[in-house]
Structure formats: C-alpha cells, structure tokens
C-alpha cells in the first residue's frame, strides 16, 4: 500500500512537470495557428482578430494557467482549427490507438514467448541460432518498413487484407479485425523480435540455476520444473522490458497509424502539430505522458507481486 501511494505521488509530480515542459516546448515552436487557419487568405486585421479570439495574444503565463486550470477540471479546451471540444476527440482517438497497442503487444508476446524459450532451449543448435538471427534482424527493421512490406505482400499482392483504413468495432467487428491485423503485426513483430532476445536470455539464465537442478533432482520432469520454478524467475526481467515496450508501442503507433491510415491518437498528434492546433497537441501529449507513467507504475507494482523479496523491503 505504501509503495502504491509513493508511486502515485511520483506519477502526479511527473505529470505536472511534463505539462509544463510540453507547454514550454510548444510555445517556442515557430508558427502560429491563426496563420494556418487563414492560410493564403490572411490579412493583418484578420490575423489580429483571430489571435485575439484564440487568446494566443495573451502572455504565455496566462495561457498556461488557463490551460492547466481547465485540465484540472478535465477540460482540454476547444480546438483552434475545428472549433470542437478536444476531450471527446482525444478519447475517440485513444480508443483506436489502444486497440492497436494492445494488438501489437499481443502479437509481440505470442511471438516472443515461444520463440524465446525455444531459442534458449536450443541455443547450441542450428534452430536456436536461426531464431536468434531472425530476431536480431527483426530488431533492425523499423515498424514503418515492416508495415510497408506487409501491405505489399498481404494487401497488394495477395489481396487478402485491406491496405489501410479503420472500421469501429461497434459498426462491424469482422471488418474491425481485418483492418487491425496488418498494423498490429507491423507494430508487434518488431517488438516481438526485441522481446525474444530478453526471453531467451532470461530463460537461459534460469536454466543454469541451482534451484532448477534441485527440482529436477527431486523427480520433477523438465517441462513442469521449468513451468513451476523457472518461468516465475524468468518473468521479472521480461516484465521490465514489457513495460518499456508498451510505452514504445504507444509511441510507435504514431508512425504505423500514418502508414495504415488509422485515425488514432498519433495521427491526430501529427495533424495537429502541422496545423499548429496547439491545445490539441498539448492534450494528446499529456494523455500519452500519463499513459506511459501509468504503465511504468503498474509494472513496478507487478514486480512486488511477482518477487516476494521486494515485498518484504
């Protein structure tokens, strides 16, 4: 419980600092939302009037206070460009990105666990070496390249899956799943390759531990011995990497969403940066920061569940 409180407090402090940093960075970003809205139709009076109606002509401190105060009440403000409330837009997009991130993680875990264990078990044999090499190559491929290759093979050549787009789950579950397969694979396979390396080395370490030999000496067969004694011990380092990877997947989704035309949070972020729709950018970044922080805290708490030694401290 004390651990939980301490973690939550540090999360809040981090979020506040992050909000400040985000605001500071965006306020020095060159470009002006009023200029973007008016485009080639900007006159001097029109620009001044629009800046005034946006409130971007006020001192930065006032703008920050105004924004932060709204945020405390759960109010993200109203978009400069589209005039609609930002909160609901972010939550719409977050839903899409969450499916993508979860799907990507599922692919990564489903690939990495068997592959890592297999690579560890056969680390002196050709099959194990091959798996290691494949995962090494996978690490080197960026997610967007994996995406482009997957589109070419499965959508353009084979015509089996859509090349891009998104259908909400509520509208058509089958279409929803079909649209998510390739983006999830391109996010997940790369992360899976990374994870495989960690699973492999964690399992390798465990395989050489005395307790496993003892368990075997007591008459347990190989698989149950590893399952009961080995995997829980291998899980701690793997969990650390998983937590980091979930954060990486959330960020990686930004690029993959663009390749696959998925209207998620990353897509919203890039578009809003281009439009200098600063309140939207700030909102999205804060949501992402909090998401990453929450993942880290949850990972920390899971350690304590998994490792009794940490609990006693």
């Amino acid at each position: 419980m004390r651990v939980f409180l301490r973690r939550t407090a540090s999360l809040l402090v981090s979020a506040v600092i992050a909000s400040f940093v985000v605001f500071a960075f965006l306020s020095v970003l060159p470009g002006d939302p009023a200029e973007v809205v008016l485009g080639t139709n900007a006159g001097t009076q029109e620009l001044a009037a629009l800046r005034h109606s946006f409130g971007t002509d006020r001192p930065l401190v006032v703008q920050y206070a105004d924004w932060a105060q709204g945020l405390l009440h759960g109010d993200f403000g109203v978009s400069y460009i589209s005039h609609d409330p930002i909160g609901p837009r972010i939550s719409d997009r977050l839903g899409v990105t969450c499916w993508l991130a979860l799907g990507g993680m599922a692919v990564a875990v489903l690939f990495a666990l068997p592959a890592g264990v297999l690579a560890a078990a056969g680390h002196r044999r050709p099959a194990g070496a091959l798996l290691s090499a494949v995962s090494q190559a996978g690490i080197a491929i960026p997610a967007f390249l994996a995406g482009i290759l997957l589109v070419y093979v499965f959508a353009v050549r084979a015509g089996a899956l859509p090349a891009g787009g998104y259908t909400p789950l509520a509208e058509d579950p089958a279409a929803w799943a079909r649209h998510l397969v390739l983006p999830c694979l391109s996010l997940g396979l790369v992360q899976g390759a990374v994870l495989t390396r960690y699973v492999r080395s964690a399992v390798l370490t465990v395989l050489h531990q005395d307790f496993l030999r003892t368990a075997r000496a007591k008459g347990r067969r190989q698989w149950p011995a590893l399952w009961r004694h080995g995997l829980p011990n291998a899980a701690v380092p793997v969990l650390t990497v998983l937590g980091l990877q979930l954060s990486a997947v959330l960020v990686g989704a930004v690029v993959v969403e663009r390749v696959f035309v998925v209207p998620g949070l990353g897509d919203l972020l890039l578009q809003s940066v281009a439009d200098r729709d600063l309140l939207v950018v700030q909102g999205v970044v804060i949501v992402l920061v909090v998401a990453v922080l929450v993942v880290n805290v949850v990972t920390d708490l899971l350690y304590h569940l998994l490792d009794p030694r940490l609990r006693s401290r």
Partner: peptide, 23 residues
C-alpha cells in the same frame, strides 16, 4: 540441460505455430 531443451523446443514450436497461424 540439452535434453530438457529439446523437449521444450518441440512443445514451444508447436504452440508458437498454432498461435501465429490462428491469428
């Protein structure tokens, strides 16, 4: 270790293939 490895490898490969193919 090697023996336990080979047993593991068989089951792991089966599981992995089934999962990926299923998806």
């Amino acid at each position: 270790t090697a023996r336990s490895g080979s047993a593991l490898r068989r089951s792991a490969r089966a599981a992995g293939c089934a999962l990926l193919a299923g998806t």
